[in-house]
Every structure is written in C-alpha cells, then in structure tokens.
Design a protein around this nucleic acid. Sequence first.
DNA 1: ATGCTAATCCCTT
DNA 2: AAGGGATTAGCAT
Length: 740
Amino acid sequence: MEGHSGLIGRMRDDDYESRSGSDNFDGVSGDDQDAGDDQPKRKRYHRHTPNQIQDLESFFKECPHPDEKQRLDLSKRLGLENKQVKFWFQNRRTQMKTQLERHENIMLRQENEKLRAENSMIKDAMSNPVCNSCGGPALPGQISFEEHQIRIENARLKDELSRIVALTNKFLGKPISSLSSPMALLPSNSGLELGIGMNRIGCSSNVGTPLPMGLDLGDGVLSTAPAMPGVRSPMGLLGNDAQLERSMFIELALAAMAELIKMAQPDSPLWIKSLDGEKEVLNHEEYARLFSPKPAGYATEATKDTGIVIINSLALVETLMDVNRWAEMFPSMIARAVPLDVITNGMGGTRNGALLLMHSEVQLLSPLVPVRQVRFLRFCKQHAEGVWAVVDVSVEIGQDAANAPFMTCRRLPSGCVVQDMPNGYSKVTWVEHWQYDESVVHQLYRPLLNSGIGFGAHRWIATLQRQCECLAILMSSSIASDDHTALSQAGKRSMLKLAQRMTSNFYSGVCASSARKWESLSVETLGDDMRVMTRKNVDDPGEPPGIVLSAATSVWMPVSRQRLFDFLRNEGLRSEWDILSNGGPMQEMVHIAKGQGHGNCVSLLRAGSVNANDGSMLILQETWTDSSCSVVVYAPVDVQSLNVVMSGGDSEYVALLPSGFAIVPDGQSSPGYGVVPNSSNGTIPKGGGGDDGGGSLLTVGFQILVNNLPTAKLTMESVDTVKNLISCTIQKIKGSLGVA
DNA sequence: ATGCTAATCCCTT
DNA sequence: AAGGGATTAGCAT
C-alpha cells in the first residue's frame, strides 16, 4: 500500500517537474493570472468551438483516421493548429475505445445476471426434485448428465465473473493493485462472490440427488428464459452494440410470441363475436389491458381466421422461415422480401427457436393502396409435437415512437399457429394485426381495409389454401397424368413458371413495389387516380427491349366479384373488351389446372379469327380466385417461344408484358362477407366466390411497349394512348355488363 | 466526486 | 520521426 502511494506520488512529482521545466507558458500563464492580463495568443484552458467540433465530428464519422494531408486541410479550414487536429483525432479514437469497453462491461454484467438467474433456477429445481412418474431412483447416466450441465454452467459463470471483475476494476476502481491479479480483489466484492459460492454449493450438494423429472421437458422451465444456444456468443467476440440489439430482438420476439398465442387461443376474451357469430372483432379494451394501448392517429386492423390447409406443419414452417419460399407462397401479397439478419437458426436442426430479421413489402392489388413496408422479426417456436407457431413483429415496436416518426404502418404481433391433422392437412390459425396511417389509402379502398378483407388474416389463409392446393394438384397429376393436354411434365412446369413470372410482373406494375425499378411519371396530371410508370429495358430477356409503359387504375363496379371474374375469363366474350381478340371469340388451346374450380388455371388462348398474320401470337393467361380476391392476367407471347417452353425449355428468355385485372369486394357489402371461416378447402355456400350481390373494386393494369429503342424518349402521346386504352376497356366492360 | 477534453508523456514501429 | 496508448490538468456537471 504505502509503497504504491509512494510510487504514485513520485510519479506526479516527476510530472510536475517536467512540465514546469519544459513548458514555459505554464509559468507565464500563472503570471498572467496574477497580473490580470490576458494574452490572446494562448489560453491556459481552451475548448474548440462547437463549430469546429461539429466539423471534426462529421469528418470523424467518415474517416476516423485521417492522413497528414487531410489533417492539414482540416486545420486550415477550422483555424486550428495541425497538432491540435492530430490530438483531437487521437483523443477521439481513444474515447471511442473506452466507450466501447464500458459498453461491453455493461453487457457482461447483464449477461452475468441472466446466467445467475438461470442457474439459480436450475439449482432450485434440483434441490427439491419432483419425480412425477414413479418416484423410484432415476437412471444414473442422466444424473451425471444433469450434474455435468451444472458444472459446465458454473465454470462458465465463474470465468465470466472474473472477466467482469477485472473489467470493473479497470474502469471503476482506482488501480491501486494494478500489479496484483484482479482475482485477489474478489473477497471484497461480496455480492457477486456469494452468488458463485452458493451455486457451487448447490452443485456439489446435488450429487446423488434424484433426477428432477419435471424439469427437462422441452417446453419446461428452461425455455422460458431466453436461452438460445448460439446467441450467447463467446464473450467479447460479438460487438457490444450488436449484442445489445440482439438481446432486444430476442425479448421482443418472445413477447410477440406470447401475444400471438394469446390472440390465437380459441374463445379468448380478446375477441368478440359479432352478431352473426361468424366474424370476430378485437376487444380493444382487453387488448389494451393485456398488451398495449392503441396509439392515436393510426387505424387498427386486427383479424383472426382459421382454415384447413393441405400442408403439414413442418413444411409450412420451413416455408415461412425461408424468406424466398415465403414470398413464393404468397406472391399476390408479398411484393418483396429481403432477409436482413439471421439471429438464430433454430435448435437441434429444427426451426424451433429460429429468429430472423427481414424487410418486406406487403401489397394489395391496386395502385390506390400503397404497399406496406415493414421491417420485422420472424420467430418460430414449436409448442408441442406437431404444433408450431410463427410470429412476426415490426422492430419499431418497443422502441421509441420518436425514432420512427415517418412510419405509415407497422405490424403488431401477427402470424400463425399450425397444428398437424391426421391426414396430411393442418389446421392454421392466423392472426393479423396492423396499425396504419389511413390517410395514404384512397377513399375507395378504406372500407375494404376497415373490414379486414384487405390485409387481414382471412386473405393469408385463403392464399395459403389456394397455393397449397395448387401444389397438391401438381404433385398428384405428376403421378396420374390424366390431364387432357398433351403437355409433358417438364413442359407444364415451364409454362407455370412463365405464367408465374407474368403474374408477378403484373403485380409489380399495379403496385409499384420496389421489386422492380419503375420510374413514376407525373402523378398529378388530372388527379385521375391512374398510376403511370415507365422503365427502360436494355438487357432483361424476359421483356421486350425498349421503353415500357405501365398504367393502372382502380374503379368501383356495381357488379359482384364473381360475375366480373366469370365475364373476364370467358374466352368466348373476349372480343367485348380485348383488342387482342381481333373482334372475335378466343379459343382455349391449352389448359393447366391449378385448383379444383375451373377458375384457377393457366391457359393458352388463340384469337379465333382466321387471319394468317395472327398465327404468330398466342395469349398466355393465368386466372385465379379465392375468397378474398380474383385475378385475370394475360400477355401476348409469340408462338415460337411458347413451343420451346411447352417442350420443357427455359422460360427465362421469353419476352412478355402482362396486362390484366384484379377484383376485390368493395368491403361495403354484408359484414360477414369474406371473413367466413373456411371449413375446409371446399367452397362456402354463402357465395364463397364472391357472389354476395354487392359491388366490387376492379383494378386494371396494362404494360405496353411504347418504343423498341431503349434510348428513345417517351412522348406524352404514348401516355395518353395507354390511359385511353384503360378507360376504353373499363367502359367496354361496363357496357357489356349493362352498368355503363 | 465524476466526466469530458485538450494536451503531454512515453513507447513502439 | 510518426503515430498510438496511457496519463494528466483544467474545467464542467
């Protein structure tokens, strides 16, 4: 002790000596003070002006390590000495470092807390074991396994503790005994040390005690703590900030999962049955009581639905946890999905515990409803054999609202609970919960969104059912090839792939998602609710080269969805609205079924009029309908390319531009509409196809080539042409349906 | 007391 | 000699 202080004292003395010896202005400034005279040349204490600091800071952000030249430049610009700039950067760097270390220290402490809590839980459970089966002595092998686990745990705890103590001393305590080992200080640090001691005692005293049978079941006490293998990185390897963020994510995911489970529970007080007993509405009071109150200024959309889907839980979970496969499963809903981070990949080779961060755009097929951009976590958990849950939650949730002032929507805990059924089907309960800024949605679509049909659980379930049915049909028909088309399996697959591309390109033109790069044109021409966009295609073989113009709009139609859909997909009535028909009916050449009803298929159409010139063009068309939406998309394709595709060749190089329609109910019809629970994959008697007598919203989208030179300039005439095309088409449809 | 910052000291490359 | 880490003095909270 004495020796140390003596040493320090001496060092200080030395320092003062050297300072007073070498630095003359120290003495001068002392004189200054005495004389009350200030020399502007050098102040004894001085801080750089806020301006200078700001400049330095911003430079530091770009480049924390400027070279000689950059520093000289800065010093000139800021009126500082070259040396000062150098020192500033040096100091800034060391400051960063200490902050970093301090942060890490905090993280280590937290980690330690968690471990201790977990450990004391284990210890607790072991000290009064409950054998719930026989009460007899447990298997010796398992005892030693348990014991082993505890020992490992304790060793890790001890190791981490010593690290923390070392760090703590380094930063907090004065390094009085900097020469001695940090461990020597342990006895003074009573609280922490006691914890360890107790744990060790608990461990050793447990040798030979009966096995705690109730404890190690997969879903027991252990999994309630956020214990995720792989997340707990070797200490210090993972950066503090990243680790802080991760632990926040984990907590958010766990809370979201708990919320989803509560929301998905049948007969939960969180939902109120409507009068007809079919639709359920969120009980906002109960929700606010259990979770969080509703923020002002946002519309809420909470829906729940259950359906039977022809897929097993494992396959569905795999699909949901793979960003690309997920987007492929819901192509009409997911415009774009980008994986951002894999926080955990799951435990023991399963998806249980997997946690992903991703960004996605969710769309409704209309230019009048902007895509919903969300950055969210997706967390998967197995709740029992054959029972899984996957929950999504926006990552803005749980953070300051002030951090995301420009948010137009967010997704509250949403997702599904999947339960295997005996026959390869599974029962899926979906909960969908959004908050969004209603002002960005066109008036025409607000009722639809309010009713929950637009983005609600029902739509997810319906899409899932339709897609899984399609997969099932394709699988079965590949075994029993009973279809009348003379198409090979490979040809069929290529055709479907081409149709898939066509359809999703249609979606992108209608919704302007960022999945494809569109350049939007003067939107406010006449406020005519039409979205016109353009893109230059130079090297995408899937589209004709040149300038492509996309136009889309949505209108209300006093006709049921079913009627509109049946009309538009009727090739015999094609000439009533489609200029490609050359004035006559069309014929279906090829039909590939994608669903049980006739409405879900990919087909090839030929314009009927016997015109030698038309022989080179066919119409590729995809139609689908489910209880939330109906779509007809088509594109002219040249025969030679199609022949290649039909014989199983690559469809990537077939150039096409899609046009078509999307139809949704207007949302103002009978309240139960569209939220009718689907009892199975069969149709619902109550006008399941949408024939509820109400009106519908029709979206029309065209993509046309206005110039086959990518370098050409777009003319206003082309824009007018495509706009005219759309409004004429709408007029013709109205006329044919007698509602003009 | 504790934290922050400009400046210095001292060691490594 | 240049640069970086450790340390300190002077002030602010």
